[in-house]
């Protein structure tokens, strides 16, 4: 194939041309379809819907954003979503730390492999099926209540469900239930980067700390934890971003209060107000951008 070989020789001397040739198709796809769509989204958020005809008026206006930020109900939604995202992130970090710490620093090689598979499998298991499974678990006669009943803890549950705001008629229709599902769903996204960061803490550092007189607790606080911080930041980006954008979980499990994602889905669908949906979806983008900027300072991207 002399022609192909000649082409190969030609390309070899022109690295820039060769790179451009490789990059062009994927760049066109992501550049035009994805970035283009994001711009379309942004454009839509600066349009508004005509109150009478219910049609989109394609003219630049800030009316939609004014509507978004002037209605207390909308602000409630944003606040509720952010509060849930923060709570879920914090809880996921607390539960993930012992798991990641054990699998990265203490487990035997075989146990470590078991933990990795054990974390990855639920992570990759069908998202909807997991949500559905939780509905079964949290239902009124479901496993959770049965379990509590066996241990005589039903009054505790009833007490929790009687709490105003976070309670509800059953776990499946309360914020507590939603919170549990969120934590469950994003937990692997916290464990894996955390374990990766902890695994990179050299054993000699722990030994050096002990050698210099630190008790295990002190070593953990002063040596291990600071070095694991980038992993924690990386994991929190996932839990935070995923909670902000989710609309399936709040609509399947939980209380009637709306979340940002649900508003986006509902506004573009039944309400037919694409501009408001677009404006709503810009909120998580901005929040995540702020969060990313903060996380970058903590070196989160080194642990991804």
């Amino acid at each position: 194939m002399p022609a192909l070989r000649a082409a190969a020789a030609f390309l070899h001397g022109r690295r820039g041309f060769y790179l451009a040739l490789l990059l062009l198709p994927p760049l066109l796809w992501l550049g035009i379809i994805y970035l283009g769509s994001l711009f379309a989204l942004l454009a839509q958020s600066f349009y508004a819907i005509d109150e009478f005809t219910a049609r989109i008026v394609p003219e630049f206006t800030l009316a939609t954003y004014r509507q978004l930020f002037s209605q207390p109900a909308n602000l409630d939604i944003i606040l509720r979503t952010v509060a849930m995202a923060v709570a879920v992130t914090a809880a996921a970090a607390v539960i993930a730390f012992p798991v990641a710490n054990y699998m990265a620093r203490y487990a035997t090689p075989r146990m470590k492999a078991l933990f990795y598979v054990g974390v990855m499998l639920p992570m990759w298991t069908s998202y909807l099926v997991k949500v559905y499974a939780w509905r079964l678990v949290l239902a009124k006669q479901g496993i959770f209540s049965w379990f509590l009943d066996v241990f005589g803890l039903t009054p505790v549950l009833d007490g929790a469900l009687a709490t105003p705001v976070i309670g509800g008629p059953s776990l499946a229709s309360s914020y507590i239930g939603m919170f549990i599902v969120f934590v469950y769903m994003w937990l692997p996204f916290m464990i894996l980067p955390l374990a990766a960061a902890l695994e990179r803490v050299p054993g000699s550092l722990v030994q050096a700390s002990a050698d210099l007189g630190a008790r295990p607790g002190q070593t953990f606080r002063h040596v291990v934890l600071p070095l694991a911080l980038p992993g924690l930041a990386a994991g929190s980006i996932f839990t935070f971003s995923l909670t902000l954008g989710d609309y399936i979980i709040p609509s399947v499990v939980g209380a009637p209060g709306y979340f940002i994602g649900m508003m986006v889905y509902q506004q573009q669908g039944t309400a037919g107000n694409l501009p408001l949906a677009a404006a709503f979806s810009v909120v998580p983008i901005v929040l995540i951008a702020v969060y990313l900027a903060l996380a970058r300072r903590m070196g989160a991207f080194d642990a991804l």
Partner: peptide, 27 residues
């Protein structure tokens, strides 16, 4: 910048990708 473009679709929540594509299809 190009590297950033290649992480954006999974860094941003799925709902953003969804509504953005919908907006583009509509337009």
């Amino acid at each position: 910048l190009i590297t950033l473009l290649f992480v954006l679709p999974i860094a941003l929540p799925g709902i953003v990708t969804g509504i953005a594509l919908l907006a583009a299809f509509k337009m």
